[in-house]
Amino acid sequence: FKEKSRSVLREWYAHNPYPSPREKRELAEATGLTTTQVSNWFKNRRQRDR
């Protein structure tokens, strides 16, 4: 993950740790990642924050 992608994901996570499928698609387009990568990033981040 590039730093720019991570910062976008972190910003979204601060507002909503559970993005909808549509939001995940938008994030994937904005970051250049796949929706699976975005989903996994959020899943891992939520697990880490437990």
Rank of each mutant, 00 (worst) to 15 (best):
L9Y: 00
K43R: 08
W41A: 01
L27V: 08
R22P: 15
E11Y: 00
R10A: 13
R50Q: 06
N40I: 10
H15M: 14
E23A: 05
Q47P: 03
E11K: 06
S20L: 12
W41L: 00
A30C: 12
G32Y: 05
L9H: 00
A28R: 00
S20R: 04
W41E: 03
T31K: 00
P19I: 02
T36D: 11
D49H: 06
R46E: 05
S5P: 11
R48W: 08
A30M: 11
R10N: 13
S5H: 12
P17R: 09
V8T: 14
Y18N: 12
T36A: 10
W12A: 09
S5N: 14
R25D: 12
K4T: 13
T31M: 05
A28Y: 01
D49F: 02
Q37V: 07
R10H: 07
T35H: 10
E3G: 06
E23C: 05
P19M: 00
T35G: 12
E3C: 05
Q47R: 15
Y18S: 10
Q47H: 12
R46F: 02
F42V: 00
P17W: 05
L33S: 05
Y13F: 05
A14Q: 11
A30F: 09
F42G: 02
V38E: 03
A28C: 07
P21N: 10
A30L: 12
E3Y: 12
N40P: 01
N16S: 14
W12R: 06
L33D: 01
R10P: 06
Y18K: 09
A30S: 13
F42P: 01
Q37K: 10
P17D: 06
A30D: 10
G32Q: 13
Q47V: 08
R50W: 14
L9K: 02
F1K: 11
K2G: 09
L9G: 00
F1Y: 15
N44I: 05
A28K: 00
K2E: 09
R45H: 12
S7N: 13
H15S: 14
S5M: 13
K4A: 07
T31P: 01
P17S: 08
P21L: 15
E3T: 04
N44Y: 07
R10Q: 07
T34L: 06
F42E: 02
L9D: 01
P21T: 14
K4V: 09
R50M: 10
A28E: 05
K43Y: 04
Y13C: 01
L9M: 09
W12N: 13
H15E: 15
K4G: 09
R10K: 15
N16W: 02
S5C: 04
A14D: 09
D49Q: 04
Q47A: 10
W12I: 05
R25T: 13
A28D: 01
R6M: 13
F42D: 01
R22C: 15
N40H: 13
R22W: 14
K24Y: 13
E11S: 10
T35I: 10
E23Y: 03
R45N: 13
K4N: 12
A30W: 08
A30E: 14
N44A: 08
R22S: 15
N44K: 10
T36Q: 13
S20T: 10
R45I: 06
R22I: 15
E29A: 04
E26R: 03
G32N: 14
Q37R: 08
T34E: 09
R6Q: 12
F42N: 00
E29P: 00
A28W: 00
L9P: 01
R48T: 11
Q37H: 07
S5E: 08
R48H: 12
R45P: 02
H15F: 12
E3W: 03
P17A: 15
S39E: 15
L33W: 09
K4E: 15
W12G: 11
E29L: 04
E29N: 06
R48D: 11
V8L: 13
K4R: 08
T31C: 08
T36E: 10
R50A: 06
R48L: 09
L27R: 00
K4C: 12
A14G: 09
Y18D: 12
Y18F: 11
Y18M: 12
K24R: 11
N40V: 11
H15N: 15
N40W: 03
P19H: 02
Y13E: 02
S7K: 10
T31Q: 03
L9E: 05
T34N: 15
W41Q: 01
A28T: 07
E26M: 05
P21F: 12
P19F: 01
P17H: 04
A14K: 09
S39P: 01
R50P: 01
E26G: 06
R22H: 12
R6G: 10
Y18W: 07
E29D: 11
E29F: 00
W41S: 03
P21G: 06
R48Q: 11
R46K: 04
R25E: 15
V8Y: 10
Q47E: 14
E26D: 09
K4L: 08
S39N: 11
A14L: 11
P21W: 07
N40K: 14
L27H: 01
R22F: 14
S39D: 14
L33P: 02
R48P: 03
K24Q: 13
K43Q: 12
T34H: 05
E3V: 04
R10D: 12
S7W: 09
E26T: 03
S5I: 15
S7A: 09
G32T: 03
K24D: 06
A14C: 15
A30Y: 07
E3D: 07
R46P: 04
L27N: 00
P21H: 09
A28P: 02
E3M: 08
N44C: 06
N16M: 02
K4M: 11
L9A: 01
L27W: 01
E26I: 10
V8S: 07
Q37T: 08
E11A: 09
E29H: 03
S20F: 04
E23M: 02
S20Q: 04
E26P: 00
L9T: 00
R25A: 15
F42W: 02
T31E: 06
R46I: 05
L9F: 03
S20P: 02
R50Y: 13
E23W: 00
R6D: 12
R25C: 14
R10F: 12
Q47D: 15
F1L: 08
P21C: 13
S39M: 05
E3H: 08
H15R: 11
R10C: 13
G32A: 11
R45F: 05
K24A: 11
A30I: 11
T34R: 07
P19K: 01
Q37L: 04
P21A: 08
A14I: 15
N44G: 08
S5G: 07
R48N: 12
P21K: 05
E11H: 05
T35V: 13
S5Q: 12
L33Y: 06
Q37D: 05
F42Y: 01
F42R: 00
R25Q: 13
G32H: 10
L9S: 00
R48I: 11
R6C: 09
K2W: 07
R46V: 08
D49L: 04
T34V: 03
E23I: 03
T34P: 00
N16Y: 02
K43C: 10
R50K: 13
N40A: 07
K2F: 13
N40S: 10
G32V: 01
E26W: 04
G32L: 07
S20A: 06
R46C: 06
T31S: 11
R45T: 13
H15K: 13
S5W: 10
S5Y: 05
Q47Y: 06
K43A: 11
L33C: 06
P17I: 14
W12L: 06
E11F: 01
R25Y: 14
Q47M: 09
E3K: 09
R46S: 05
P21M: 10
R48M: 04
N16P: 00
A30V: 12
H15L: 13
R10M: 11
N40D: 06
T36W: 06
R50T: 02
K24M: 11
S39V: 03
R48E: 14
H15V: 14
R25N: 14
P19D: 01
P17G: 04
K24L: 13
K43I: 08
R6P: 08
H15W: 13
A30H: 08
E26F: 07
F1W: 05
K43S: 11
E3L: 06
Q47N: 07
A14F: 07
R50D: 07
E29T: 03
Q37E: 07
S7L: 14
R50E: 12
P21E: 13
S39K: 09
R6K: 15
D49V: 04
S5A: 13
R46D: 03
T35Q: 15
V8Q: 06
E29Q: 03
F1C: 06
Y18H: 14
R25K: 08
S5R: 06
E3N: 09
F1S: 09
W41C: 01
V38W: 02
R50V: 02
Y13N: 00
K4P: 07
P19E: 01
N40Q: 05
P21D: 14
E29M: 03
R22D: 15
S7I: 14
P19L: 04
W12V: 09
R22Y: 15
K2L: 07
D49C: 03
H15D: 15
R22L: 15
K43E: 14
S20G: 08
E26H: 04
K2P: 06
T34D: 12
F42S: 01
E29W: 02
V8R: 08
Y18Q: 08
R10V: 13
Q47L: 07
T34C: 07
R10G: 10
T34K: 13
N44S: 08
S5K: 10
V8F: 12
E26A: 03
R6N: 11
K43V: 10
K4Q: 09
E11G: 04
A28G: 08
F42T: 02
H15Y: 11
P21S: 05
E11L: 02
D49N: 06
G32R: 09
T35L: 11
P17Q: 14
K2N: 13
E11C: 04
K2D: 14
S20H: 04
V8N: 04
R10L: 13
V38A: 03
N16A: 05
S20D: 15
F42A: 00
S7M: 12
S20C: 08
P21Y: 09
F1A: 02
Q37Y: 09
H15T: 15
Q37I: 03
V38H: 06
S7D: 14
L27E: 00
K24G: 08
F42L: 03
D49P: 01
S7H: 11
E23P: 00
H15I: 14
E3S: 07
T35M: 11
W41N: 05
T34I: 02
P19Y: 00
T31N: 05
S7E: 15
N40F: 03
G32K: 11
S7F: 11
E11V: 04
P17L: 06
R6H: 11
R48F: 06
V38R: 00
